[in-house]
Nucleic acid binder design. Structure first.
Lengths: 295, 295
DNA sequence: TTGTAGGCGTTATCAA
DNA sequence: TTGATAACGCCTACAA
């Protein structure tokens, strides 16, 4: 032991893994770089991982190559389990991985019958509209990301929740602002777009997230629009961005951090658990409204 | 090749690495989980890594165990190079790693003679005070993290910049609010602390970062304090938090994303470059003031 | 061109 | 308890 200390000997990691056949690593795979959502999610995984012998690895791939990357990681023994963020649900692929006993946890966009962690996006949008209507708003616009080809992405679910709520509440006004990205500048542009609308809304539900809501708030207030007097604004996520706007943002909380922790727990259940049900378990988190000053 | 495809064969990563003796991985080591600073920094590394054959790995350690972890990673061949964030500068350790030709890039807190990426924190604080004074402020308070034992951490440098600027500008007023953490709530508490001060400042320089500045802004404005009329507020970092406050935050930009890219480039130079100077190169980024509405 | 053998560093097994 | 040996899967070098 003294010699080990003196020579700074540390066991070669690759040699160890090769022999063991297990990596004791889990991997996050996504086609986008760090952003606030991923930060919160990864933070949740990190904290859960911290108390175990596992390592966390992150891989960024080209859009559309996620499935290949997952295969490479799992079959090539780069990690024991994978968290796939917003990956287009390729059922034959998922079947194959399940049959091969390779743990994949789908995040956000989930497929019935396969392990995943998600959020009730339909209900969240539905309740957001109901809440706005309950505060006397009648002309509720929504800003939202691109709808998907499949019609089953989290964006599609939020969209459906919005439409169904309007219908159930007998609100004839609807206005959908579909935006290409989720950044501040796009949020600011929402105001320019809205200004030119002939029929102005009295509420904006930023289903596109807190960052876009913060951008809208900046542009609207410096454009002289009163919030919440002229227009109510509701965000989505309750991320640190939503928490730090100067005018407190009312928002639909998504417990992203807890989702990360749950995702790791689910991966562990698949890797070490006796419970075969884990391979088709979906953990769904409920919406929660955080009321601040913009509604 | 058809058979490879059919059987979903992927080369075993550990076997490959064991033979190669190189991992083609770089590792970020820190004693804290994802936060906005780390997010931006890692994002910079990720984008630089993306175009190479390298992978990025992240390791979170107990505070004080960073050096052990770096040794384990480098000697145990878990990665080819390490980015050490805010690690207490242990010179004998750094000497040893340099002698062993193991690339370590120090981030933020840097040691002369060893590879690192940093920011001119002294100059940044100095210029922030000068800027505030140039706008007619005479009683400038600073909020800042815990000073270090060594007296040479980035916090210490900001502190010195503040004091020297006050001296050079003949401003007798000084008020240092040393805070334990960098979150929103701590920022809000800055307002409560300040309210009870007998001699109220006319400017607050949040050298503790944009997040604390955003928290202060919330508390101050809802407490009825006028910004910038009653008090000027200046942040630090120009992170996404600083960019998304409803009242635009004037702040001292730190190009964290670029620092991440530079750190990876420096690691590459050490790993693949012919230039032995890389092992003692320090890349320092200059400060830049972003003027918005709070000053 | 194709095939075979050895070694990377670890760990598990089996023998002494 | 200790010590030698084989095998994990890859790559490279050398032989056929």
């Amino acid at each position: 032991l003294r010699i080990i200390e003196e020579l700074d000997y540390y066991p070669n990691h690759s040699g160890k893994l090769l022999k063991q056949g297990r990596t004791y690593a889990v991997a996050v795979v996504s086609s986008f770089f760090q952003n606030v959502f991923k930060m919160d999610f990864v933070n949740g995984i990190e904290q859960a991982v911290y108390h175990t012998r596992y390592q966390l690895r992150q891989f960024t791939t080209q859009t559309g190559k996620e499935v290949d990357k997952c295969k490479e990681i799992l079959f090539g023994k780069m990690a024991d389990a994978v968290f796939a963020m917003n990956v287009f649900p390729d059922i034959p692929f998922l079947e194959k991985m399940k049959k091969a006993n390779k743990p994949i946890v789908l995040v956000e966009d989930v497929v019935p019958g396969f392990a995943g962690v998600t959020y009730d996006n339909y209900q969240a949008a539905y309740e957001a509209v109901k809440f706005l209507a309950g505060r006397g708003r009648r002309k509720i616009a929504i800003s939202i990301g691109q709808k998907s080809f499949s019609g089953h992405s989290f964006v599609d679910n939020r969209y459906k929740g919005y439409l169904d709520a309007l219908k159930d509440l007998d609100l004839p006004y609807s206005r959908v602002l579909e935006i290409p990205s989720y950044d501040l500048e796009t949020g600011r542009q929402l105001y320019s777009i809205m200004k030119n609308l002939d029929d102005f809304p009295d509420a904006l539900f930023c289903a596109s997230g807190d960052v876009t809501a913060a951008g809208f708030l900046q542009a609207a207030l410096s454009g002289g629009l009163g919030v919440p007097d002229d227009i109510a604004v509701m965000g989505f996520d309750d991320s640190i961005i939503g928490q730090s706007t100067t005018l407190g943002l009312t928002t639909m909380r998504q417990p992203v951090h807890e989702m990360g922790q749950a995702a790791f727990q689910l991966a562990l259940d698949m890797l070490e658990g006796q419970d075969p049900g884990a391979f088709s378990r979906i953990v769904t988190f409920p919406p929660e409204i955080i009321v601040r000053q913009t509604v």
